[in-house]
């Protein structure tokens, strides 16, 4: 029994399994008809394989497509990488925005604060009045770039500095820190306004005189009156020398 074309074709394709493969090989050794047909099919197979597109026929396409793919795919890979790295979910964006707002708020706050503490620069040499005078009661005097090179703060005495500040309309409150009194605790003068209030009290006390009934006398009445009394009802012996003789008052009666 001769071999079927299909079997020969499968055998040529190398897909025929044992034991049929060995049987076919044995048959081909003896059957000239089958051997001839086998040769025909084998040659046909070789011709088909010979028509295969050769490597050199698509070298250009191979390179061209790769260049296109590399350009686009590498770009895509990088793009995806960047997206992965820098794309955040909404809450993260919100947090970032909040952080940004806080940052700006803080920067504005500190800038304002630093402005508040900012010391008006007083050009020592020129002596011009600074317009940006703050309401702060503390002023620090320092030399500026506008001062001559030879000039420095050390060249001025404290009196000159105080004078300078006074000329510029500053209300000067000079304080000494870490200075303790030796014997008596002196009242600390917090504001210059307190000082002028005390002065009139002393002067007024001397000028006032009273009559026997304790009524306050006017200036004309004081001159006419023979006997003057003080606030406590004591007799003041001599109306003109009141200040000088006040100490003799208790000895007179």
């Amino acid at each position: 029994m001769c071999l079927d074309d299909q079997v020969l074709s499968t055998y040529i394709d190398g897909e025929l399994a044992e034991p049929w493969k060995t049987q076919v090989e044995e048959h081909l050794l003896h059957c000239s008809i089958c051997k001839s047909r086998y040769k025909q099919l084998k040659d046909l197979g070789n011709d088909i394989k010979a028509a295969r597109l050769r490597e050199e026929e698509f070298t250009v396409q191979r390179e061209r497509i790769w260049q296109y793919l590399e350009k686009n795919c590498v770009a895509i890979v990088k793009e995806r990488f960047i997206e992965k790295r820098f794309s955040f979910k909404a809450p993260v964006f919100v947090a970032a925005a909040a952080a940004l707002v806080i940052f700006f708020a803080a920067s504005i706050y500190f800038t304002a604060n630093s402005r508040g503490n900012e010391i008006p620069e007083i050009p020592v040499a020129s002596g011009q009045v600074e317009k940006e005078t703050p309401n702060s009661s503390i002023v620090t005097v320092r030399t500026t770039d506008s001062a001559p090179a030879a000039m420095s703060l050390q060249d001025l005495t404290i009196e000159e500095i105080l004078q300078l500040l006074d000329n510029r309309g500053f209300e000067v409150d000079l304080r000494l820190k870490s200075v303790e009194p030796l014997t008596v605790a002196l009242p600390v003068i917090d504001s210059p306004e307190e000082v002028p209030e005390e002065v009139p009290e002393d002067s007024v006390q001397v000028e006032v005189y009273y009559d026997q009934d304790g009524n306050e006398l006017l200036a004309e009445e004081v001159l006419l009156a023979e006997v003057l009394y003080d606030a406590d009802g004591n007799i003041i012996p001599e109306k003109t020398g009141a200040e000088n003789t006040s100490e003799e008052n208790p000895a007179a009666p």
Binding site: D5, Q6, S9, T10, D13, E15, Q40, L41, L44, G45, I48
Partner: peptide
Amino acid sequence: KVRVHRAKLQLE
């Protein structure tokens, strides 16, 4: 297997 063989026969 069948299709390959048929293709070869037609080509032939």
